[in-house]
């Protein structure tokens, strides 16, 4: 640019005239214009090349065209990446999310399950947050951080936590150790306990989990008699209300049985035959010794948790 005083040609952006020292920045209409374009460093070039190889494009998300489909961000991990054309990354996010949920389900009840639930949340979160660098929201760093935090809380607190909380009210994960009410459970099976509503009673023949005190945890066994039922043991035959119990309900162990049992199941109790249960009688529980369990001790009905990802052998029957 030329000096307004002496006319000497100075480089654009010069603070003062090289010839006479007149400050050029204060000259009327003086505008400093950069004439050299920005250049990529070798590291940037290498990173872009690597990104192109991995992601199929070296485009920065800031430059992508905003689309209305961005609203679908929170629905499925990987979907935002598909929208933006990051196909490989979309596959990575979707696979990580599905694998995390599958592992969390498979390991349900084990201490590792929450870790994978966390992984699923994290993957969901990362996938949803990743494209938000797009200019569609025109946000600064602080707003973007707040928004991503909100998304995280919405996902974790609004979807995952209630879902697992609700599920937790209905199921209590339990691993079977050595109690096998024939022919339902195997050792090592996962069991879900569905808590019973206060007014409900399990059906006769169903499996229930109950506590026997003494810190022995939950025991699973079959309900043979409901309150008011008449239970009889006569000549090697079990009867409930004078009707022979079905083969699936017949207790397994008949050793050391008294010759005659005949009683009515009291209110607030269930008759649960101990079968092969080693806890009965061992802890001196007067109710359990008779095969009666207080309704207060019933944790809920028990269901074998059949994970679709886990193969099991054929069910044994004894």
């Amino acid at each position: 640019m030329s000096c307004p005083r002496c006319g000497f040609f100075n480089f654009p952006g010069s603070p003062a005239c090289v010839s006479c020292g007149t400050p050029l920045g204060h000259a009327a209409g003086a505008v400093a214009i950069a004439t050299a374009p920005p250049r990529a460093t070798s590291l940037q070039k290498r990173m872009r090349r690597a990104r192109k190889v991995v992601l199929g494009t070296d485009v920065a998300l800031e430059t992508r065209t905003p689309r209305p489909s961005l609203a679908l961000f929170a629905l499925l991990p990987g979907l935002p990446q598909v929208i933006f054309g990051y196909n490989v990354l979309a596959l990575v996010f979707a696979t990580a999310w599905a694998a995390s949920l599958a592992l969390a389900t498979w390991l349900f009840g084990s201490p590792f399950s929450p870790w994978f639930v966390g992984g699923a949340i994290g993957t969901h979160f990362m996938s949803a947050v990743h494209p938000w660098r797009a200019p569609v929201f025109r946000m600064g760093f602080r707003d973007r951080t707040l928004l991503t935090l909100t998304i995280y809380l919405l996902l974790a607190g609004g979807i995952y936590w209630p879902a697992f909380r609700i599920a937790g009210q209905h199921v209590i994960p339990l691993a079977v150790h050595d109690i096998r009410p024939n022919p339902v459970f195997h050792t090592g099976d996962s069991v879900l306990i569905r808590p019973l509503p206060a007014s409900a009673s399990p059906a006769a023949g169903s499996l229930v989990a109950f506590t026997i005190g003494n810190g022995a945890g939950l025991v699973i066994d079959r309900v043979l008699g409901l309150p008011g039922d008449r239970i009889q043991w006569q000549a090697g035959t079990w009867k409930r209300n004078s009707i022979d119990l079905g083969p699936g309900e017949v207790p397994l162990t008949t050793t050391a049985m008294p010759r005659l049992i005949d009683f009515v199941v009291p209110e607030n109790a269930l008759f649960i035959w101990p079968s092969a249960n080693p806890y009965f009688g061992r802890f001196g529980d007067p109710i359990a010794e008779t095969g009666l369990v207080s309704s207060k001790r019933i944790a809920g009905t028990a269901w074998r948790f059949a994970s679709p990802f886990r193969r099991r052998g054929p069910v044994e029957s004894r």
């Binding site: 920005p38 250049r39 990529a40 070039k45 430059t63």
Partner: peptide, 13 residues
Amino acid sequence: LDEAHEARVWADK
């Protein structure tokens, strides 16, 4: 020179 990012910035300028 395969510097499309910079080219975009410079084109804007």
